[in-house]
Simulated assay, not measured.
Amino acid sequence: MLTRTKTIIAGLALLVGLGVGYQCSRSPPEIVAVETLSLNLDNNKRQVATKSLEDGLKDLAEIARTADQEEAYAFLPQTQEWIEVGVNENDDKFNGNVYCHQGQCVGYTKVSIDSDKLEELMKKHPEVRVYHIHPTDFAKKLIAEYFSQAQKGNLDQRDAYFQARQEVDFHGLPSTDDLLKIFGDERDIYSINPQGKLVMGVVAEDSVITFSLTDYGINYFGEMGWFKWQSFRTDFRRDRFFQTIPWTPSFDSDQNREMACETLSGPYLQVTYQRLNNSNSLEDTF
């Protein structure tokens, strides 16, 4: 059995680039009640909806399937409310583009989180779940570039195939920046609401991967000082450069994703995988 590994930072551009940032809001946006969650690029409007977690995740999976940008929503389990918290989805001209040189591909998509709104929600609610999407469109661009690089002789055909297959399985994994965000947020939330719980998730068209801190992680990061936090961030990025996620060609996507979540989980973090009842259109690229 051939087993290959995927480096979280040095390997595929998808895990390097996909992620969330933070943006303080300047003025309150107009609240727009909607029936279906969608990609909203107007920062002057905030979409809200009342629906179950399951129905909201279905909407986000559809955004992931059809959109070329990321989007983010917060879900409040106690009230069954969805509140858009993603902003500045298209403020970067490089967002969503892929660039390759001699077989090495880089690129990213990103969305910023309205930090003021998230802080407001964490003050009022015992649990807040923040989901952002990883668009299929970007993964398709990467897959196309891998095969293009192989045709140009810059990448071995076998390596191109394996990297493309890894995109199919892993494009819904949280990036290093995604993981650092929940570590950093816990420090802020702990001072606002020590009993509050933050859960984050990445939604792809056929999967939801959820990550949250363990009890140990909540206390560890909640009580961490600024200088120690800066040191941790540096060490985390360096360590992730060398950490690998197991990937086995003979396994199906579910098995590889479950193994990846087990690898990412640890003393600080719990990562779980949920398969949605949707097909993966990336399979059509083969």
Rank of each mutant, 00 (worst) to 15 (best):
L155M: 10
E54Y: 00
V203G: 01
T248F: 11
Q230N: 14
Y22L: 14
V208Q: 14
F241L: 15
V20D: 10
D68L: 00
P126N: 04
Y220I: 02
Q151D: 15
L15F: 03
L57W: 09
D215L: 09
A10V: 04
K110F: 04
P267D: 14
N40S: 09
R257D: 05
Q149W: 04
K45E: 05
A64M: 00
C261F: 04
D42F: 13
R158A: 03
D169I: 10
T234D: 11
R165L: 12
E30Q: 12
M224H: 01
K123H: 15
S250E: 09
L14W: 01
T272E: 15
I8D: 12
S281A: 07
V106M: 06
F94L: 14
M259T: 07
A74C: 06
K93H: 08
C105M: 08
L39S: 07
L76N: 04
D188N: 05
A64C: 01
I133L: 00
L155V: 05
A144E: 14
Q255T: 07
V128Q: 09
V168S: 01
A13Q: 13
L264H: 02
M122F: 06
L155P: 02
N280G: 02
N280P: 04
A33N: 12
G17C: 02
W229Q: 13
S281G: 01
S112T: 03
M200C: 12
N193G: 05
G11R: 00
R240P: 02
N43G: 09
W226Y: 13
Y216A: 00
R46N: 00
D188K: 07
R165A: 10
D91L: 08
D169L: 12
E223I: 05
T66L: 10
P246N: 10
H134Y: 08
P267W: 02
L57T: 03
R46H: 01
A64H: 09
H125Q: 15
D185M: 14
T5G: 05
K117A: 13
C24K: 12
P267M: 11
K181V: 09
Q23P: 00
N154W: 12
T7C: 02
C105E: 02
Q80A: 11
K110R: 15
L76K: 04
